[in-house]
Simulated assay, not measured.
Amino acid sequence: MFGQRTVDPHPGTHYRSSRLSAVNGQYFFATREGTLEGPFLSRHDAEQSITRYIERMAMADKLLRHSSEHIDNLQRREAIKHNQEL
């Protein structure tokens, strides 16, 4: 699979592999960030958790971008106010 995430500096080839693993009857999934999430009691629970994990990561990214934009806007306003006072 060829693709590029927004955080990747260059396009590359990514090969899909199962992110799920079972150890002693418990299920885990690996993330792109290098973490191992789990344990889950069933494969189904682990698969549902993958979906929720992806949604949380997307929301966290969106909130971080929004916060950064808000801070930038506040800093611009302060700079303009400071320049007007001079």
Rank of each mutant, 00 (worst) to 15 (best):
G25H: 05
G25K: 13
Q26P: 04
Q26K: 15
F28P: 01
F28E: 04
F28I: 06
F29I: 04
A30P: 00
T31M: 01
T31L: 04
R32M: 05
R32F: 05
R32H: 08
R32S: 03
R32N: 01
E33A: 12
E33K: 13
G34S: 00
G34M: 02
T35F: 10
L36Q: 11
L36S: 11
L36W: 05
L36H: 13
E37W: 07
E37R: 14
G38D: 06
G38M: 02
G38Q: 08
P39F: 07
P39G: 00
P39C: 05
P39D: 08
L41T: 15
L41V: 05
S42T: 15
S42L: 08
S42Y: 06
S42K: 10
H44W: 11
D45Q: 11
D45L: 13
D45A: 15
D45P: 01
A46V: 14
A46M: 10
A46Q: 04
E47N: 12
E47F: 14
E47M: 12
Q48P: 00
Q48C: 08
S49W: 03
S49Y: 05
I50V: 12
T51W: 02
T51K: 12
T51N: 00
T51Q: 10
R52T: 13
R52V: 09
Y53P: 00
Y53W: 04
Y53A: 06
Y53F: 14
I54V: 14
I54H: 09
E55G: 03
R56Q: 13
R56W: 09
R56F: 08
M57C: 11
M59I: 14
M59C: 07
A60V: 06
A60K: 11
A60M: 10
A60C: 04
A60S: 04
D61W: 10
